[in-house]
């Protein structure tokens, strides 16, 4: 049990009461991740977190599976918001520099390219590489400052250099 972590979780999630879950399992039934990962169950994560198993959860990496589709929060009859609990757990994990490698890579991509994967373009029939600007498509403009601030706020453990 880690009292300080549980306290931290309750501080972040002061606006919800995950204790009132009565295990109707609607969050699991509709979850697109639970369908493919047999160990991923939103209500199980919520209960484990509130029983004090936060360290195990953030070490196991299971919290990074969630796609944040928010279906569990939407369908919950008790307004428990499992998706928000998972975000809070991710914040705690970030503080401890625990996010998976791939996540840090994605975060860097967002900083550099404004999206998760860098732009790759498509190859036409006559083997020409076509980029966005060739098709007159707008390239998203990213405020690097804003993203840097976002990472600072969430304490995401990332070294963006200068």
């Amino acid at each position: 049990m880690h009292d300080s972590l549980t306290k931290e979780l309750k501080r972040i999630l002061y606006w919800i009461k995950p204790e009132i879950c009565f295990v109707c399992n609607r969050c699991v039934s509709g979850c697109p991740v639970a369908e493919v990962h047999s160990e991923y169950r939103p209500n199980k994560i919520v209960k484990l977190a509130y029983l004090g198993f936060i360290d195990e959860l953030i070490q196991s990496g299971i919290i990074w599976y969630c796609t944040q589709c928010l279906k569990c929060s939407e369908r919950c009859p008790m307004d428990v918001h499992p998706a928000s609990v998972i975000v809070a757990l991710r914040n705690i994990a970030s503080k401890k520099k625990l996010p998976p490698e791939a996540w840090i890579k994605m975060a860097k991509n967002i900083y550099v390219y404004g999206r998760i994967t860098p732009e790759m373009g498509v190859v036409s029939k006559d083997r020409k590489l076509i980029k966005r600007e060739d098709l007159n498509l707008r390239t998203p403009v990213v405020s690097k400052e804003l993203i840097r601030r976002l990472y600072d706020e969430t304490l995401f453990p990332i070294n963006l250099g200068d």
């Binding site: 295990v23 109707c24 399992n25 609607r26 969050c27 699991v28 039934s29 509709g30 979850c31 639970a34 369908e35 169950r41 279906k71 369908r75």
Partner: peptide
């Protein structure tokens, strides 16, 4: 467990996706 939602297929069958604890 309760299903999250229901879906209908073309011949009127209802698809129930439900988790059994």
């Amino acid at each position: 467990g309760l299903p999250s939602e229901l879906k209908e297929d073309h011949d009127g069958k209802v698809i129930v996706q439900v988790y059994d604890a």
